[in-house]
Design a binder for these strands. Structure first.
Lengths: 237, 237
DNA sequence: CGCCAATGGTCAGATGCTGGTCCTTTGCGG
DNA sequence: CCGCAAAGGACCAGCATCTGACCATTGGCG
């Protein structure tokens, strides 16, 4: 019963007829909040936007958003305080079970395309002083961070590069693939030797971007990603 | 009232607190079907998968899917036939109002990152004979197509390159950005001179991919995209 | 010291979406 | 020529979600 009369490319069919929504509104909302917390976009101790604003931004009713927030509260990720100047404050949960990792090669290849592209585009632009400062700041944070918060500062640096492209869709895509990558990285330890090596590569990439050297930025990022990819393939093979 | 206690990066906040869902289930389902039709994944005269299969794939109830199909029927995109060997068959609608174009630079930059990355990755892989044939076939279709169906065959060729990466996420991302691009392209005419120039570039890109020359594939794609980008910026400036 | 604005907490009614079931149409194959 | 399998068409009960309003708490400010 192969095909009655359908010469449809099965690969493209999988791409286009993929699920319209990854889960119900509650699940997707919670994933987003977890993403913001895990990527360090809202730092530990920081406050999330008010419920009304968040629900409006996410395009979700406040009831649904609150369900997600309550779940995050019970899992120890946030703490809610009432009254004016209250809100949801990010905590450091004792245990944080990451979602199951997806397809490794799919994630790594998508990451390669997105982040090498982002590095090249960022280097091709004339960056504002604020953006240049932010890049340098994130680089310094990564270089001086210990093993415990390396993953978060590293995420922030890579996101800063994506931001420097001034391309919202690209920034969002990089954030998403970074979340998938972190789910993979959770399975392997942070090794100090790799850490110092990464820091050297980070510096080379940021220097190239600040110099406007698109080729060097791309090549530097490609080498950097190859290192992480090799590490992951080794551990998850 | 700048910030009460929120040192949250507003750019990243926009990226992470973006809407969880683009619309209701009906709207998103209809967008997907239109995407499949407009990109030529299901060719004119071709049959869509059965309702039950489609609803399962899209993760949407059959009722909702049928609402979308009925809308497509009333807009002249498909025709439904009952009985065994029936189904929904793609028509050529007389008028097809495209959705309003989004941010031009955002679309073009994201496209640059995704498609140059896809070309490089495709060239880096050892392609199966089927994939090689498919690439050559799509290239030939594009070269021999007239003005009327150039946009569709061109879309198919670019999608074929994405498929060659064997990376589902990348394929889906390229398909999405291509849909956004087509919304922009709808505003400008197809010019024969540009068409022949594009065909030369297409041949260079596919040759590079088939030769496994990653650098040439990337550079060729970058030049090709720059041409379209310049054209669009000129018309939409 | 008391008011007030901003925030989280709660609820009821309306609407959307789902899952399941059954009906109708159609054409191939026995 | 008839029966069956595969497809679209239609319906309904129940759950999920949204809308909108109102209540409760808190800390700064007048």
């Amino acid at each position: 019963m192969s095909l009655p009369s359908d010469p449809i490319d099965p690969v493209l069919a999988d791409a286009l007829f993929r699920p319209v929504r990854a889960g119900n509104a509650f699940e997707e909302t919670m994933e987003r909040m977890l993403q913001a917390i895990r990527l360090g976009v809202v730092p530990p101790g920081g406050r999330l936007p008010p419920e009304r604003e968040l629900s409006a931004r996410l395009g979700v009713s406040r009831v649904t958003l609150r369900e997600a927030l309550r779940a995050l509260q019970e899992s120890g990720h946030i703490e809610s305080r009432r009254g004016r100047y209250g809100g949801a404050f990010v905590q450091l949960p004792s245990s944080d079970p990451l979602p199951p990792p997806g397809d490794v090669e799919d994630t790594l290849t998508l990451r390669y395309a997105l982040e090498t592209g982002a590095a090249e585009v960022a280097a091709s632009r004339s960056l504002t002083p604020q953006v240049r400062r932010h890049l340098r700041s994130c680089l310094a944070d990564t270089a001086t961070s210990g093993i415990s918060d390396y993953r978060r500062t590293d995420s922030r640096l890579h996101l800063a590069i994506a931001e420097a492209t001034a391309t919202p869709s690209l920034t969002a895509a990089v954030a998403d693939v970074r979340t998938r990558l972190n789910a993979l990285l959770a399975a392997i330890p942070v090794i100090p030797a790799n850490l110092t090596h990464s820091n050297e590569q980070h510096k080379a990439i940021i220097d190239a971007i600040l110099d406007g050297d698109a080729v060097a930025a791309r090549v530097g990022m490609a080498e950097h990603l190859a290192g992480t990819a090799a590490l992951l393939r080794g551990f998850l093979a």
